[in-house]
Design a protein around this nucleic acid. Structure first.
Lengths: 223, 223
DNA sequence: GTCTATATTGTGATAGAC
DNA sequence: GTCTATCACAATATAGAC
């Protein structure tokens, strides 16, 4: 990955003597925070998983809190930019629905703990909600929402006037779509218990969802 | 609730001398765990909010972990039984959709932090998913899911055969409905930031949702 | 940049008097 | 049942050598 270039020092370094210690810590922290939450995670667990010394965490990130913020931003960048990009694009509305469903379900299948982690952090640190969005796009959160709403509203209105769509507020539209995609992963443990799924069963469930969700959603938009 | 009967001691007790100390702790713990999460909460914060001595927490609940479980069960009882009861009832399918939407949105409006708390706990303690369901109904989780699925499947099939409904798996149906109701609250901080809502704005958003969600959902079910 | 060793809280748990 | 006082320890932050 990074070790591709030169190794200015060859022999004397057993565990993690490469030039990517910071990255190793960040990766480990990502994994640990993701499954234990920021408050529940122990820095020692992180450093152990990273194969580095506890002091190095302090060296690179100064404090657990700062590390947590770095991880959160990183995670946010994995969750949102896709949907935002699609919804704000100038693709046809029906296209957007299909794209969001496909992109999100596919991506979240690979990182099923991401929604739980994000929503969990936000539940206990609402002030980070702003970071979440602006970290991704560099815009003020509300501005993003406004942009998306504006674009969607125009598309919706056009269809409503043409008698091709039932009226709906763009905000409701976006939340509905997001809910359908994200919720199953956020509630994964609960659903698995209630529906009697194992991991494979859940994947099958999502697979089916990937085929049927967009049509379902589009039916709801009909007049 | 409990103080209804006699008060064997009247005068000498300043802070919390009533016979409901356990309840006071439980209430305080509920509030604190809800906003900080189990891992993030401090027992001292709980006892302070309860107006009782730290030692009493140990006296009644022995450990923070046990207290957390008690609170979690209690919270679970507030979130699920309504939906389960409605979905498993023998009401008409269209009735169920309307009822779930109304019941959930109204109830969650009063306890907007509940979904975030539950999902957060489940994300970090998947093993509690079982408790969540069985605590409510006394049934094995998977059994509940099976019952609901069976009832819904029968109703759906009847309508599909009559050409009145588009085919859908009962599990997808239930998850879709739940997602639409619960997600906005679970993602409340994020939505408020992105959509530029304040508390009142969010309430208005939910109010509108209460009127439009069931129709939206039912449109998606048409053939 | 990385390690060993240690300081410094914060925090849950508990003993024992009342 | 409730309080005061305190313990034991976990966990993070840090100093200082290499």
């Amino acid at each position: 990955m990074i070790k591709s270039t030169s190794q200015r020092k060859g022999p004397p370094r057993p565990p993690a003597p490469d030039g990517q210690t910071e990255q190793r810590i960040l990766d480990a922290a990502h994994a640990v925070f993701m499954r234990s939450g920021t408050a529940g995670a122990r820095t020692q667990e992180i450093t152990k998983e990273a194969g580095v010394n506890p002091a190095l965490l302090h060296y690179y990130f100064r404090t657990k809190e700062r590390l947590a913020e770095a991880v959160f931003r990183r995670a946010a960048c994995q969750l949102l930019p896709a949907v935002i990009g699609i919804l704000a694009s100038d693709a046809e509305l029906e296209e957007k629905v299909e794209q969001v469903v496909q992109t999100e379900l596919q991506h979240l299948s690979k990182t099923p703990y991401l929604p739980g982690y994000i929503l969990s952090e936000l539940a206990h640190h609402p002030e980070r909600a702003g970071q979440l969005v602006s970290a991704v796009t560099g815009m003020v959160p509300a501005e993003i929402g406004a942009r998306i709403s504006a674009v969607l509203r125009k598309q919706i209105n056009a269809r409503v006037r043409a008698g091709r769509m039932h009226p709906i507020e763009p905000e409701q539209f976006a939340v509905n779509l997001l809910a359908m995609c994200v919720f199953p992963f956020a509630a994964r443990p609960m659903l698995m218990a209630m529906l009697g799924f194992d991991k494979a069963g859940f994947d099958t469930f999502i697979e089916r969802r990937r085929r049927e969700l967009a049509p379902f959603f589009l039916r709801a938009l009909r007049p």
